[in-house]
């Protein structure tokens, strides 16, 4: 008799479906991003996806596991996030290196899907920005739209990298200004003077991040993610940036700018919400998201890196298991009229 056990019914759901939804939600952001910087980003995504599957398959094999896990889509989500967080004109090997660290070191060596204590994509980002700070800071200059052939030459290293390609991001600009004692003007003037400012945040980028927000809201609506992490993330960033901005509006940017700059939206909806490395209890998610938002602001404004999303999320990853232990919710029958008494087993 084949052993089957209740329940015999199952909802129409699978890990693959979850991951597909996440990738679908990334689509608006990818489209706007492509419109902004060109097909290079598509090339980076394909490159990352190819190597993610390659490394995943190779290590599943080495670990004596089934290759069926390639279909779960988790490696592809990681690959997409790496491609979207790395500068679009990064050399190809930098992307591959990032994918290697994410899939092999951060995920497979810890036991594969579901076992990684850290967000693989953020490990990739952290490793690469520490090892190759210059390359990881080369964001394409505003309005620079290279033809595809030239972009390919840059990515695949046929032609030498030229600094003229890149420029400071708005976040870089304000950080640099903050650190200059001689800086006398206001942040807003500075951004305007470098034509970095758009309607409400970084020029062009504001629409990419808006598209991430749209995709993120789709995930919440489809219940792929819960509201706690993104809301807490965005709320804590809003509060801390509002405080700084109110204290000194000439040196600090307004909350809107911070919410729609850098990796805030991507981090809040797509990265901090990673269930494996994040918190799982409702209260834990609020703490996790809130902490990540706060740390991200502090690092991006006062720290040494252009953006703080990766490090803030990794730091919160460290805390996640402990937060979960201390935020276990009361169960049914423990709240209303229920004594918090441990039921002794007979």
């Amino acid at each position: 008799m084949n052993f089957i056990s209740p329940p015999y019914l199952h909802a129409e759901t699978s890990v693959r479906r979850v991951m597909n939804r996440v990738m679908l939600a990334l689509l608006p952001g990818i489209v706007v991003y492509t419109a902004l910087v060109g097909v290079a980003i598509i090339v980076q995504i394909l490159l990352a996806c190819f190597f993610a599957l390659l490394f995943e398959g190779l290590f599943q094999k080495l670990r004596g596991r089934s290759l069926a896990s390639l279909q779960d889509g988790s490696a592809l989500v990681t690959a997409c996030l790496i491609a979207l967080t790395f500068p679009p004109l990064s050399p190809w090997w930098l992307t591959v290196l990032g994918v290697f660290f994410a899939i092999v070191i951060a995920k497979q060596l810890y036991g594969g899907l579901g076992q990684n204590p850290f967000n693989p994509a953020m490990i990739a980002f952290a490793v690469c920005i520490v090892a190759f700070p210059a390359l990881m800071s080369q964001w394409p200059a505003q309005g620079l739209y290279l033809p595809l052939s030239q972009q390919m030459e840059v990515i695949f290293g046929v032609s030498p990298r030229i600094d003229a390609l890149t420029a400071a991001t708005p976040l870089d600009a304000i950080k640099t200004a903050l650190k200059m004692d001689s800086f006398t003007g206001s942040i807003q003037e500075l951004l305007k003077s470098q034509s970095l400012y758009g309607t409400f945040a970084g020029r062009g980028w504001e629409w990419v991040t808006t598209a991430y927000l749209v995709g993120g809201l789709f995930l919440v609506q489809r219940r792929v993610i819960t509201w706690q992490v993104p809301v807490a993330f965005l709320a804590s960033m809003t509060v801390i940036s509002l405080i700084c901005w109110l204290v000194d509006p000439t040196r600090f940017s307004d909350p809107l700018f911070h919410l729609f700059s850098g990796g805030t939206m991507l981090g809040a909806f797509f990265i901090a919400t990673d269930p494996v490395s994040g918190c799982a209890t409702p209260t834990g998610k609020l703490i996790f998201g809130g902490g990540a938002g706060l740390l991200a602001y502090l690092i991006r404004v006062f720290g040494g890196f252009p953006d703080g999303i990766a490090f803030s999320i990794l730091m919160m990853n460290i805390c996640a298991p402990l937060i979960d232990v201390y935020t276990q919710p009361a169960i049914f029958g423990m709240r209303r009229g229920g004594k918090k008494k441990e039921r002794e087993h007979e």
């Binding site: 899907l113 579901g114 076992q115 819960t226 919710p329 169960i331």
Partner: peptide, 24 residues
């Protein structure tokens, strides 16, 4: 139909949201 092969738990929390006893 027999259930598809068991995969690793990704701690998505769907089970906790469905549990009528509010367990994890």
């Amino acid at each position: 139909p027999p259930p598809p092969p068991e995969m690793p738990c990704i701690r998505c929390g769907a089970c906790a949201r469905a549990c009528p006893q509010e367990l994890q």
